[in-house]
Nucleic acid binder design. Structure first.
Length: 514
RNA sequence: CGGGGUAUAGCGUAGUCCGGUUAUCGCGCCUGCUUUGGGAGCAGGAGGUCGGGUGUUCGAAUCACCCUACCCCGACCA
């Protein structure tokens, strides 16, 4: 009897918990970061309406709001590339398989994740429906580009004869495919969007200068637009791009203490020139191989942007990359009030637009203000204005900032100017917060036990390394940490390798990475 | 690609172990009224090849086999 009552009580509470859970879900809330960081990230991407998984394994649909962020990134970066003398062009999606075998380490690096086109036709089959036509086999199979070095260098061979044809400074905006085993929205997908710069130079020095210049462009973009502090430097030989002589990178620290490579720039030496026989005649009339670079950033930057700043209420976007910088929510009961508010809003919008600020008036009458507040907060709009009858009376406006969630009521007078300043302040504050976080999560480790503890806890760990790939691999096997960057802001100092105890000339940055 | 898990309406789910009337609930959606300064309330309504296929059975969301997709953990990687 007692048992039955107990059972009923338990059932009752189970139902209650389920009800609570359902309410929680409908409220569009995020899983808190502290509870499950990965889940938080996935929730955020979905609920901020940035992207979703598609019918194709590992490939995502980038939704309009997410794509708008990418467009902003593209616009800024494209301007920076043009300023540094580059031009855009477009090379094919398909690459003949034979091209790949020409640069040995390059093939090795990418062979395992290439999609291959083998046929060019389908046909109807009575039993199986549509099938690949076995009679339509390609003479030479085509690789869907995982990166374009090979096809581009095959092309450059025909473009370069004399030193007068150099340098070639080209960028392309494109999609690439890398058949990844485990994918995550934006961070790692089978197909992704990126830009890849490919340059050809007469001298080694000039090529190195180019690779370094583009790294600085990326670092500037990350810091000034994404409000994301980055370390710059070079990769260890083990982490180098397949086919590169030197790989430069920008490396950022995410809120869960894991590192994320946000952009790379490669000095390719003469590897591709030799593989594709790209020579030029110099002023002394002798044949020389061309020197090369390549550099790229991808839609992964959106993942970095999300993880760098966002909180448990949703996305936090830096004003300089926010598709909508200011959203205005009217608060009204009667039609007349709405009309009067709208009139006032038009004035504000005009002033804001004059200053180049992107503003949206959320005049939907299908949702209540509270709903709109929550929605725009989830989408990370930096500044929200609310205007209601009380504001019209007093000549005020409520200004809420997304980064701190603070609200204040300001006078209408010079409101556009105040908001312009506020946007700048938000941009700075977001950067500062991310910077402070990184500082607080950067540690030194001088012995193996300490190293393991600190790596486990997360963050950047600065430690001495003997410079051998063998040690690097051992460390990775034992701790999952890799050398993220041999950072150029860390001064050389002698010491003992944290793993082997051998001589070391400098500390390098270790972390677990995405 | 290995190991584990999941798949029921747009989303989140109950039911599956132990097969049996018309498949549960919440959110969302539609209509109406009342609401609107932080995710509105009430009333009514629509919406389902139970991931796909094959089988077992009088009868399958439920059992068996196969396939597919997604999630978590490893190996690989921007």
């Amino acid at each position: 009897m007692l048992c039955v009552i107990k059972h009923c009580v338990i059932l009752y509470f189970l139902k209650k918990i389920q009800r609570l859970y359902q309410t929680y879900n409908m409220a569009k809330e995020l899983t808190p970061r502290s509870e499950n960081y990965s889940q938080w990230y996935n929730d955020l991407v979905t609920k901020a309406d940035l992207a979703e998984n598609s019918a194709v394994r590992g490939s995502m649909v980038i939704k309009p709001y997410g794509y708008a962020i990418w467009e902003k990134m593209q616009q800024v970066l494209d301007g920076m590339f043009k300023e540094t003398g580059h031009q855009n062009a477009y090379f094919p999606l398909f690459i003949p398989k034979s091209f790949f075998s020409k640069e040995a380490s390059h093939v090795e690096g990418f062979a395992k994740e290439c999609a291959v086109v083998t046929h060019y036709r389908l046909k109807a089959d009575e039993k199986l429906g549509i099938i690949v036509d076995p009679d339509a086999k390609l003479e030479e199979e085509l690789i869907v580009r995982p990166t374009s070095e090979t096809i581009i260098w095959d092309t450059y061979r025909r473009w370069v004869q004399s030193y007068r044809d150099l340098p070639i400074l080209i960028n392309q905006w494109a999609n690439v495919v890398r058949w990844e085993m485990r994918t995550r929205l934006f961070l790692r997908t089978a197909e992704f969007l990126w830009q890849e710069g490919h340059t050809a130079h007469a001298t080694e020095r000039e090529a190195i200068a180019e690779a370094e210049q583009m790294l600085r462009v990326y670092a500037t973009f990350a810091r000034e637009y994404m409000a994301m502090p980055v370390l710059t430097g070079v990769k260890s030989p083990n982490e180098r791009f397949a086919g590169a002589v030197e790989t430069y990178c920008i490396e950022a620290l995410m809120q869960d203490g894991k590192a994320l490579q946000a952009g790379t720039s490669h000095f390719l030496g003469q590897n591709f020139a030799k593989a594709f026989d790209v020579k030029f005649v110099n002023k002394e009339n002798t044949q020389e191989y061309v020197w090369a670079t390549s550099w790229g950033v991808s839609t992964r930057l959106i993942g970095a942007l999300i993880m760098a700043h966002s909180d448990d209420n949703g996305l936090v976007l830096p004003p300089r990359l926010a598709p909508i910088q200011v959203v205005i929510v009217p608060i009204f009961k009667k039609e007349e009030e709405f009309a009067a508010i709208t009139e006032r809003v038009q004035e504000v919008m005009k002033e804001l637009r004059k200053r180049g600020i992107t503003v949206k008036y959320d005049d939907r009458d299908t949702h209540k203000p509270g709903f709109k507040f929550a929605e725009w907060e989830m989408k990370g709009v930096p500044v929200r204005l609310a205007i209601g009858p009380r504001d019209l009376e007093k000549g005020t406006v409520e200004v809420a900032r997304r980064d701190t969630l603070e609200k204040e009521t300001l006078q209408f007078i010079h409101i556009a100017e105040k908001i312009e300043h506020l946007l700048e302040k938000i941009q700075e504050n977001i950067y500062q917060k991310a910077f402070d976080y990184r500082e607080q999560n950067t540690f030194k480790a001088d012995n193996w036990e300490d190293f393991k503890t600190k790596i486990e806890a997360g963050g950047f760990v600065l430690a001495h390394w003997d410079g051998t790939t063998e040690t690097e691999i051992r460390i990775k096997e034992e701790t999952k940490a890799t050398i993220r960057v041999i950072a150029d802001n860390i001064a050389p100092e002698t010491g003992k390798c944290v793993y082997s105890g051998n001589e070391s000339k400098r500390r390098v940055v270790f972390a677990k990475a995405y």
